[in-house]
Write a protein that binds this DNA or RNA. Structure first.
Lengths: 330, 330
DNA sequence: TTGAAAGCGATACCAG
DNA sequence: CTGGTATCGCTTTCAA
């Protein structure tokens, strides 16, 4: 059996109540006994039984985080951001990986909910309805990061619509007129919808009527990039492609290489995300870089601050980070 | 305030004790009332207060996992393996990311320890002494995965020594006589020591005296690969290089490309790890692939089975997975 | 400044 | 098969 405050109290010849007050720094106590108690606690190898503490206190400082197991290489960055801020503000993170299997998701979520959480943060997850129901029924604060969920729960993400303008403007200024958007034609997710709309509108702003064929590719996967090149053939009917995720863009890059298409001379590429992956390609990818660390930190601070309205949307920064995959063809 | 078993008991007109028995499926009860209770629990949106349960039960089924924030792209795979098995056997995973900062590590570990864990699993972590002390002082089972820790705590990993033989034999059979080992010259970690020793011994087995200069590079980083090529120049004094991690090998690959060294014609590369990263390079990397999912699953099953001796070492499989980065120069 | 005592919610033992 | 009750470790009034 582990050491308890009672053990410490006995040894120090005071009551458990006092030990508790001292160790939690609440209420009044004399610095003298405090010294002694802290010393004893250290010596005896005492660890607070957090379960007991949680039980006796009302509020919880645990934030659950749902992370998709489908490898999104930016989840780490968001988590790191959250971790940093949580640590700073004295919150605890309970991270749970969820599969795409909805049955497993529910079980995981329920096990999370058993921990009387302050909030649940969903990272880049498109939650399915049954899971969503479970979540809303329980009274925890909810927050979606890097994804917007039907405007029914607050979210923190990049401004996907505006981001597309930034990218299209950039390419336009480099002389590109025919552009493709690869990997955002999935009909459902809000993010994909916003990106498509942003893409189309940005082109229109420059007087370019978009070609529906040039919005192609559903899966957020390496293979999508490879397939895109195969589909459009050599020579490609466009001069620039926007990859809707780094891993897609790497697929584009390798697909182009396999097909004998030179990047950036025959094909310019701008990738969305800008994780570390973009640094290990040749040529180095030009990226619309999302600020994932900022998303993570903001997630914690906003949760700490207050209850958000379900319609709150917070946008984080985007940086266009030049690499070597865009040619100026003016 | 959330729903408790008492609430359910009241509504069902029975005692809390019975509700508990039914919901945990322990002891005896009539199926009739069980039906009613389960129904009520569902309707009322009841979630077990795990803190209370933990408090009243002796044994905990929570396993803490320490994961380094330094991006090792195989940590995910191990965690996934653990998650799968844990889910199956009814264990809960509490994942904590730790920085390299030892002060932060201690605080994180202490907060973990407050959750009266069954065990703490360390993923590919070289724990520093102060942290290690904290961990051993607390009475939790410890387990190191993908790393061996001084033989003082049990571990699950690849057989790093044997792995080097497999790799060297493979390269030897392809006609290579001059080989370098990049990224394992860090003096401390046991893994690096084993790899160096395996490398040297394997060469000796083939009657090759190793060249100490050819074991180079400390950091487990992309830059290490790039730097290695710069250091050895063009033409390289060896025909094959073994990268001690995928990210290092990608550095080698890109460094070679930048220097006009053809892979595999002028330089063959075998990478250690074989994560998904190896599939997105051109050419595709030949890899000594570690079985990370297996490590994760084994971690849980061995922890579940019994207390291990501190000297237990369990080895997982290695597969030599051919890619396009090794040339036959016979 | 300190102590006694009442919970927090779930479990388990012991009667009935 | 079911109910009462003590218990887990900590926090928090309320008195002293």
């Amino acid at each position: 059996m582990a050491i308890t405050i009672k053990d410490i109290a006995n040894k120090a010849g005071i009551s458990a109540a006092s030990v508790s007050r001292i160790l939690t720094n609440r209420g009044r106590f004399s610095e003298a006994t405090a010294q002694r108690v802290r010393q004893l606690a250290h010596e005896m190898g005492y660890y607070k039984n957090q379960s007991a503490a949680d039980l006796s206190q009302k509020e919880s400082r645990v934030i659950g985080v749902l992370v998709p197991t489908t490898h999104t290489n930016f989840a780490d960055e968001i988590i790191k951001g959250m971790q940093t801020k949580a640590f700073e503000l004295g919150y605890e993170l309970l991270i749970a990986f969820v599969e795409t299997d909805s049955q497993q998701q529910i079980k995981t979520v329920k096990s999370l909910l058993s921990r009387q959480l302050l909030a649940v943060v969903m990272l880049a997850i498109d939650i399915e309805d049954p899971v969503f129901e479970v979540l809303t029924k329980a009274d925890v604060r909810l927050l979606s990061v890097s994804n917007q969920l039907n405007n029914v729960i607050p979210s923190i993400s990049s401004d996907n619509y505006a981001m597309m303008h930034t990218i299209v403007d950039y390419l336009y200024n480099q002389g590109h007129r025919k552009m493709a958007l690869i990997g955002a034609s999935n009909p459902d997710p809000i993010v994909a919808i916003l990106r498509r709309k942003g893409f189309i509108d940005a082109l229109l702003d420059h007087g370019i009527t978009y070609n529906p064929d040039f919005i192609w590719g559903v899966e957020n996967a390496y293979q999508t990039g490879l397939d895109a090149i195969k589909k459009f053939g050599n020579p490609l009917p466009f001069t620039a492609a926007i990859g809707s995720a780094d891993i897609i863009s790497i697929g584009l890059l390798n697909g182009a290489k396999d097909a004998g298409i030179a990047v950036p001379d025959d094909l310019s590429i701008v990738t969305i995300d800008g994780t570390e992956l973009t640094q290990i390609t040749r040529p180095i990818l030009t990226a619309a870089q999302q600020n994932f660390a900022q998303m993570g930190e903001l997630a914690i601070t906003t949760l700490a601050d207050q209850n958000l309205s379900p319609h709150t949307i917070i946008f984080t920064d985007i940086t266009l980070k030049p690499g070597d995959t865009v040619a100026n063809i003016n």
